[in-house]
């Protein structure tokens, strides 16, 4: 498969009145078409910043970010983005939220919206308002809204972070379903190790201050995955091991723990 997203020597520095903070330093990552990447790291490692840069929401960076060999210069529908909160338009019903700026009167849009409602398992809630939905349902609407635009890559910024454990597990299944059916490339930021292992083809582990790639761990487990399986646990320990290395480094660097 060909490379869809190519990140080279990406660095990002935040400037403020008090000085500059390096958020990301020399990030290199090539994402193949159809791949499921999870990005994991402790808070402050710049994982959200990385995602915003790929989305084109933040264009002040050094290095190069190319999607399909074209520089990312701003946001656009080829890069779907799911925020931590669903961020639905409260005045629109579920189906109108999915359509957003597109018209449901167009038969091809209508058809695709209906298909997506089926895909994210929201049949029967087409006419509901966001205030009537649970957190998990609202986030599924947000996913459908992004998918309607046929994004080349779907960027997810801790999308299930605010959900309870059961809903979260369910949403992971739904997302894998969507991924297997649509073959959409996914970049999924999380701070949950189980989630990172459960979903990914490759796990990108970031370490903080400044944000750099600690390690990229390939996950070759077959789908559907069992969180209780020995192979899963082995990978999980491997990722935890990497985090312990980060912590040890922090201790040496700062002379004190976090």
């Amino acid at each position: 498969m060909s490379t869809l997203l190519d990140i080279r020597q990406l660095s990002k520095t935040f400037h403020s009145g008090k000085g500059s903070v390096s958020a990301l330093q020399n990030i290199n990552l090539a994402v193949k078409e159809g791949e499921f990447i999870t990005v994991i790291g402790p808070s402050g490692c710049g994982k959200s910043t990385l995602l915003k840069i790929v989305a084109g929401l933040d264009v002040e960076y050094d290095g190069s970010v190319k999607l399909n060999d074209r520089d990312v210069t701003g946001p656009g529908i080829e890069k779907g983005f799911i925020f931590q909160e669903p961020r639905l338009f409260p005045w629109l019903t579920v189906e109108k939220n999915i359509a957003a700026d597109l018209s449901l009167h167009k038969p091809e849009i209508r058809k695709k919206v209906d298909e997506l409602i089926e895909l994210v398992r929201l049949k029967g809630f087409e006419k509901s308002y966001p205030r009537e939905l649970s957190g998990g349902m609202a986030q599924r609407v947000a996913i459908a809204r992004a998918l309607l635009r046929n994004p080349k890559v779907l960027l997810l910024d801790e999308p299930f972070g605010a959900l309870d454990a059961f809903t979260r597990a369910h949403m992971q299944e739904v997302l894998l379903d969507i991924w297997q059916q649509n073959k959409t490339t996914m970049i999924f930021v999380t701070h949950d190790i189980d989630e990172a292992v459960f979903l990914a083809n490759r796990i990108v582990i970031l370490k903080p201050r400044p944000g750099t790639v600690q390690k990229i761990v390939p996950v070759e487990l077959l789908f559907p995955r069992k969180k209780s399986s020995a192979a899963f646990q082995e990978l999980r320990f491997k990722v935890i091991g990497e985090f312990e290395k980060i912590e040890e480094l922090e201790l040496v660097d700062n002379g004190a723990g976090i």
Binding site: A55, L57, P75, G76, I77, K79, G80, F81, F83, E85, R87, F89, W91, L92, A100, D101, R145, A146, R149
Partner: peptide
Amino acid sequence: NKLFEVARVLGFSRLKQLIRLVIPAAL
């Protein structure tokens, strides 16, 4: 402001931003 970010990500035109986001939100 978070909804403006959504509108940017979804590729709303300036006009759509006005009639689909600003006016309904300010209604």
